[in-house]
Design a protein around this nucleic acid. Sequence first.
DNA 1: GACTTGACTAGAC
DNA 2: AGTCTAGCCAAGT
Length: 104
Amino acid sequence: MDQQFKKAVYRLVSDIPIGRVMTYGQVAAYCQRPYAARVVGQIAHFGPLDLPWHRVVYSTGKLAGGFVPNGRLGQRQLLESENIVVTEDRVDLSKYQWKPIKYI
DNA sequence: GACTTGACTAGAC
DNA sequence: AGTCTAGCCAAGT
C-alpha cells in the first residue's frame, strides 16, 4: 500500500548506484504508482535524509533540489563529485539515467 | 470528510 | 525551446 510504497521508494532510491540518476516519475512507476511522482517528491523532502536524493531529478534532467537542507553545497556539487557532468543545473538523462535491475 | 499543497509530468501555447 | 495548464497521489489543515 502507501506504506509499502514509501518503503519501496526508500529501497529503490538507496539502491541507485553512484554516477547514476533517476527521475521522480521513473521511481514512482517502479514502485507501481505511475502517477505518484509528486508523492516521491514529498517523500524526498520529509523522508530519510541518508538517501541519495541528489540522484533523483526531473524527467527533463533538471535538478530538483533548488534549496537543499542546511548543507546547501548543492545537489549539483554532489552529482559532480560522483563523476556526473552537470550543465546549467541539468544532467544528460540518456547517459546517466539508471534502469533498476528488477522488482520493487 | 472536503480542500489545499507540493523536491512531478505530459501536452498545449 | 521556454512557459502555462490540467491531472494524479498522499499527507496535512
